[in-house]
């Protein structure tokens, strides 16, 4: 058998060693990781139903998980690591509540497989301000009341953090009048609205969200 091939039978031993069923966080200590002798990157071949060792780097911390390939990045965060700040709103890429940063780019974690994101730098809302104080975008959301129920908020905030970086890199949006222009693109309210439109807010806090992003953009430049 291919050493890199994981089968449904073969995973039983791993499961036992890792000391948990598929429900919990498996472990994240380097020693256990080494003892498990798992490869640093994805197994080249995992048979259906088998668990594969999956190492995710989230908010600067390594998590060694044992997952089926079909586990999404969103479910890996929420169900297997226990980082529930990232929300599941539609699970189909239609609401943006699951927005996280992967290598500083915003993506929908519901449409990503965890196993395909090994080696990536993943940042969630919990990792924006690790030392207690709020990130500038978080503070602006509080001050401008850019949320009500709070469920879309982690996604909005992650999206805004990435969006401000995108705008600094002079990326275009559908609100950009002339895509051929060179140089900075002014972050008008119309640009902010368009660039934040991948995050639905059913409470309708859009006025506050735009104000918060505008504030954060001004403060961080």
């Amino acid at each position: 058998m291919d050493a890199n091939r994981l089968t449904a039978e073969g995973h039983a031993r791993r499961r036992f060693l890792l000391g948990t069923a598929s429900l919990g966080v498996v472990a994240h200590t380097p020693s256990l990781f080494a003892a498990e002798d798992a490869p640093l990157v994805a197994s080249a071949h995992v048979e259906r139903g088998a668990l594969a060792p999956v190492r995710l780097q989230v908010n600067g911390r390594d998590y060694m998980l044992s997952l089926e390939p079909r586990v999404t990045l969103l479910d890996a965060l929420r169900e297997y690591i226990g980082l529930t700040g990232t929300k599941k709103g539609c699970d189909r890429g239609q609401c943006g509540a699951c927005t996280v940063l992967v290598n500083d780019r915003r993506i929908n974690a519901c449409l990503a497989l965890a196993i395909a994101h090994q080696g990536d730098r993943i940042r969630t809302v919990e990792g924006l301000a690790p030392h207690g104080a709020l990130h500038a975008v978080q503070a602006a959301f509080v001050e401008r009341d850019g949320f009500q129920c709070g469920y879309c908020t982690p996604g909005q905030i992650c999206s805004a953090v990435a969006m401000l970086q995108e705008a600094r890199s002079d990326t275009i949006s559908a609100a950009t009048q002339d895509v051929r222009q060179r140089g900075p693109i002014a972050l008008t309210d119309a640009e902010i609205r368009e660039r934040m439109s991948g995050n639905l807010c059913r409470c309708g806090a859009y006025v506050g969200i735009v104000a918060a992003v505008r504030d954060a953009a001004t403060r961080s430049t």
Binding site: G93, I107, N108, I172, G198
Partner: peptide, 12 residues
């Protein structure tokens, strides 16, 4: 391209 989907989806 920028009229399609959302920024998150376009990144993926």
């Amino acid at each position: 391209l920028v009229s399609g989907a959302s920024p998150q989806l376009r990144n993926m």
